[in-house]
Amino acid sequence: MEKNTKKNNNAYSILERHGFIKKHLIIGWLYPELMSTYGDQGNVRILRDRAEGREISAEVRIISLESPAKDIAEADLLFMGGAQDQYQKIVSEDLRAKKNELGEAIERGVPGLYVCGAYQLLGKHYAIGAHTKIEGLGIFDCHTENPGTGKRMIGNIALQAEISELSGYPIIGFENHGGKTYLGASARPFGRVLKGFGNNGEDKAEGIFYKNNIGTYLHGPILSKNPELADWLIGKAYEVKYKEALPLVPLDDSFENKARAVLFKRANLKNGRQGEYVPLSGL
C-alpha cells in the first residue's frame, strides 16, 4: 500500500489526474513464452485494444523468468494462459519467488484472468495419479486431480457466469483438460455449466471467482467470444487504480455477436439470452 501512495504522487500521476495525459493501464502478461497454448495470447491483444478503444493508453508488460517480482506489483491487470506439463513445472518454480507479490495484488482486487494451466497453478495442489502431487500457490481455494486414466474433457462449452454484470449472455469457449478441479467449500465458481464439462464434469461448476480474479478452463481465446468479460476486467482494473468507474463506450461487436449466435444455435440456447433457454435442473 505504501508503495502505491508514493507512486500516485509522482509527476506522471499528477499530470494524469489533471487530464494532461491519458489514463494508463499496465497489462501484466505472465510467462507468455511458457504459458501460451491454444491461442491464449489473443486475450492480451483483446484487453489492450478494447482498453485503447476507451481512450486509455494500455501497455502490455511481459513478466517472465528474468523479470523482478515488483513487475507484478505494478501491473493493473494480470493474465496467464495454459501450458504443457513440462513448462508448467518451470513456471511453478519461478512463481514461488513472486508468490507474495501476486497474492498481494489479488487481495488488493487487481483483476486477473488465469486460463487452464494457470488456473490449476493458482490452486492448492495438482495431483497426478496416486503418487505425484505438485504444490500450487494456494491463492485460489481449489485443487486439481488428474487420474491420468479418464478421458480428457474436450469440446465447446457454454456457462452462465456467477458475476452479476456478466449475466446478459452465457460465456462460451472451448475446454480441453485432463485435470478435474474441485472448489473449496466457500469458494465461488466463475459460472454454472449449461453445456460441456466445466471444472470436473460432475458438479456443474466452471472455474473460480475470487476478488475480481477469474480462473477458468475456457480457451477460444475466451475474450474473443465474450467481449463483455474483457470489458469487465478492464473496468475493474480502472476502478481499482483510479477509484472511479470507467464509462464503457460501446464498441462494434457485430462479429462477436454472430460468432456466438452460431454456437448458441449448436448448443440449443435460443439467442443465448438469459431466461430464454430452459435452465438445467439443479442449477
Binding site: Y38, G39, D40, G42, F174, H219, G220, S224
Partner: peptide, 9 residues
C-alpha cells in the same frame, strides 16, 4: 480439429 483457438497464433 474442433478447437479454432489456433487462429490467434
Amino acid at each position: 480439429g474442433r478447437d479454432v483457438s489456433w487462429i490467434w497464433d
